[in-house]
Design a binder for these strands. Sequence first.
DNA 1: TGTACATCAGTGAACGCGCGTTCACTGATGTAC
DNA 2: TGTACATCAGTGAACGCGCGTTCACTGATGTAC
Lengths: 227, 227
Amino acid sequence: MGAADDLTTAPARQHNPRGQGHRLRDEIIAGATQLIERTGSEHSITLRAVAREIGIAAPSIAPHFADRAEIIDAVVATELDAFTKALHDAASGVTDPVEAILAACRAYVALGRAHPKPLPAPLRTPLPGDLGRRAASDARDRARHEPHHRAGVGLVQGCIDAGRSASTDAFGDILAIWMLLHGLVALPTSITSLPWPDTDRTLTESVALLARIQPAPRRRTKARGQR
Amino acid sequence: MGAADDLTTAPARQHNPRGQGHRLRDEIIAGATQLIERTGSEHSITLRAVAREIGIAAPSIAPHFADRAEIIDAVVATELDAFTKALHDAASGVTDPVEAILAACRAYVALGRAHPKPLPAPLRTPLPGDLGRRAASDARDRARHEPHHRAGVGLVQGCIDAGRSASTDAFGDILAIWMLLHGLVALPTSITSLPWPDTDRTLTESVALLARIQPAPRRRTKARGQR
DNA sequence: TGTACATCAGTGAACGCGCGTTCACTGATGTAC
DNA sequence: TGTACATCAGTGAACGCGCGTTCACTGATGTAC
């Protein structure tokens, strides 16, 4: 065991500075996310596997997470934050209210499909399996999902206010749209043998129906080629 | 180890008759289904657990199933058959075409929700995780899902033929409805903290929209209080 | 300014457990002669 | 009609593996005196 070994073997991770132990928590979440993305399944999340992934000893996880469910929960929470932000960004630059809601819906589907099959799309099967059981902390769960729900209500309301939607229940209609989007992400991915129609066409048409979009803008002085 | 033990301990299962070894296969599927229903997760399917459930030795499974994925696959196939049949039954007695499609949709959601959370609703997350990988035998996968898809096309077509639907694409429209139903089953179950609207109302309204159901029946001599 | 000590951050060997798989086997039943 | 043998259906002990968890520890850094 000469000095050479210190160079070839993993050099015994240097500790985080005092009071900064929580930094490891973020590394654990990042490692778990990588693991899910690489293997395509949250099955692969075990304490030992995550520890291996980021090069620490398995017991070092204990101070930060009680069990694998807590780690997965943290991954989901992180992804959901990014997801909510991406949805917001997708719609925020768009002035036409119908185009805005469609842009958000397209972003939803794109994000959902970008993730590997089983878990990490926060939407795919939002809180699966045993996780669902422990994440039952309803207040937190709600705090996670309400932001994009509220944003969705706003998008439908925008169409109503502009006279582009006949909806009288923005609250309920956006949930129906959400259900459709969930299926639009999940079904063609898992049942690959059926001849699913073009995603964007389905999305555009079906969202328009569920949002009760009206064909004519109703505004008198609609500029035509104005874009 | 007297004769009394033969009565109190499990009496060393008597073999199936010669040539009937395949009977055990059905027992294994039934045991696995029970296990999933009881634990609420296909995680609980292990060769040993299934063997325990039906009182056989673990190696006895090997001749019938190569691994746990094959067992889960068989459970899904069995459930899908029952599911397709239930959908058919739900709609077959109904003469009004709009009511028929709604009845099938209600049956879909009821069946989906009747099953424990994660797997066994064949629809919930149809072919999850590692299963998806191995069930890639596309021809079989298609043979499983095409029957209820075709039935769905027929239901929409029935509405079109009766002048109750403005749909020009029964094929695509039923798929959009399927996506909605998938979300209607999955989302309120997994995200319990949001104030989901009444399921039946959402279903009735949204399916009518996606199937492009027209408000007026168009038939001249519509009987009013006829039931 | 020193120095002893407490605390923090993390290690590494060892454990018991359930898992899938192997291997030699048992006992009933059909079949060849 | 007997009898030896092959086959089928399934058993039970043993294995090696990865897992979560325990336990005593190490070494750096801040703090009290």
